[in-house]
Simulated assay, not measured.
Amino acid sequence: MKTNIGINEAGRKAVSDELAKLLADEFILYTKTRNAHWNIEGADFHTVHVFFESQYQQLEEVVDGVAERMRKIGHYAPATLTQFLQLTHLTEKLENGNNSQGYIKELLADHESIIMFLRGNITPFAEKYQDMGSSDYLTQLLETHEEMAWMLRAHLTK
């Protein structure tokens, strides 16, 4: 059935295309956070292992939310690893060792990249495409990523 929600098809398609990139980024970050949870080593293992678990659980909800937002505006969400790797702004590679500082620095950089992507789309979603719902959704998601980044940043030593 045709989606009739007060946003023209071109606007919904443009928003959906950006949400697909966001979904790919979120899935890559989720996977990298799972990797950190599974493979962390060091004297702070237990504390950081539990911390990464809380982060990947939040990201699992985010991934689902982005895909559902795409469906709400009438488009299908990409759902294969191949699609995610083609769409993402992030890299799936982890450059540092299996220690907390290395993982946290890399995950923080990815959160900050997503934060910048979100900031860059909030106003166009609302003004250019007249999709206030998606704009509001990105604002809420921005706050989630800012908090997660803050928590990561608080673990870093200089």
Results as ranks from 00 to 15, higher is better:
residue 8 N to I: 11
residue 9 E to Y: 09
residue 10 A to S: 14
residue 16 S to Y: 05
residue 21 K to G: 10
residue 21 K to R: 15
residue 21 K to S: 14
residue 24 A to E: 06
residue 25 D to N: 15
residue 29 L to D: 10
residue 29 L to Q: 05
residue 29 L to R: 07
residue 30 Y to H: 14
residue 30 Y to W: 15
residue 37 H to W: 06
residue 37 H to C: 10
residue 38 W to A: 05
residue 38 W to N: 06
residue 40 I to V: 15
residue 42 G to I: 12
residue 42 G to A: 07
residue 42 G to P: 04
residue 45 F to G: 06
residue 45 F to C: 10
residue 48 V to E: 08
residue 49 H to W: 04
residue 49 H to A: 08
residue 49 H to E: 11
residue 50 V to L: 15
residue 50 V to K: 11
residue 55 Q to H: 03
residue 56 Y to F: 14
residue 58 Q to F: 06
residue 61 E to M: 07
residue 61 E to D: 13
residue 62 V to F: 05
residue 62 V to N: 04
residue 62 V to I: 14
residue 65 G to L: 01
residue 65 G to C: 03
residue 65 G to W: 01
residue 68 E to N: 04
residue 69 R to A: 13
residue 70 M to F: 04
residue 71 R to P: 00
residue 71 R to E: 03
residue 73 I to C: 06
residue 74 G to D: 08
residue 74 G to A: 06
residue 75 H to I: 04
residue 76 Y to H: 11
residue 78 P to L: 09
residue 81 L to W: 09
residue 81 L to P: 00
residue 83 Q to P: 01
residue 84 F to C: 08
residue 84 F to T: 08
residue 85 L to A: 13
residue 87 L to G: 07
residue 91 T to Y: 00
residue 92 E to C: 01
residue 92 E to I: 09
residue 93 K to W: 00
residue 94 L to F: 09
residue 95 E to T: 14
residue 96 N to I: 06
residue 100 S to H: 11
residue 102 G to K: 03
residue 103 Y to D: 08
residue 103 Y to W: 10
residue 104 I to A: 00
residue 104 I to K: 01
residue 105 K to H: 13
residue 106 E to G: 08
residue 107 L to Y: 03
residue 108 L to E: 00
residue 110 D to E: 12
residue 112 E to Y: 00
residue 115 I to A: 07
residue 116 M to K: 15
residue 116 M to T: 15
residue 116 M to F: 09
residue 117 F to E: 06
residue 125 F to N: 10
residue 126 A to Q: 13
residue 126 A to N: 13
residue 128 K to D: 14
residue 130 Q to W: 02
residue 130 Q to E: 15
residue 132 M to F: 12
residue 132 M to V: 12
residue 133 G to S: 15
residue 133 G to H: 13
residue 134 S to T: 12
residue 135 S to V: 09
residue 135 S to Y: 04
residue 140 Q to I: 10
residue 140 Q to Y: 05
residue 141 L to V: 07
residue 142 L to P: 08
residue 142 L to E: 13
residue 143 E to D: 15
residue 144 T to C: 08
residue 145 H to F: 14
residue 146 E to V: 12
residue 147 E to C: 00
residue 148 M to Q: 15
residue 152 L to T: 00
residue 154 A to L: 01
residue 156 L to K: 02
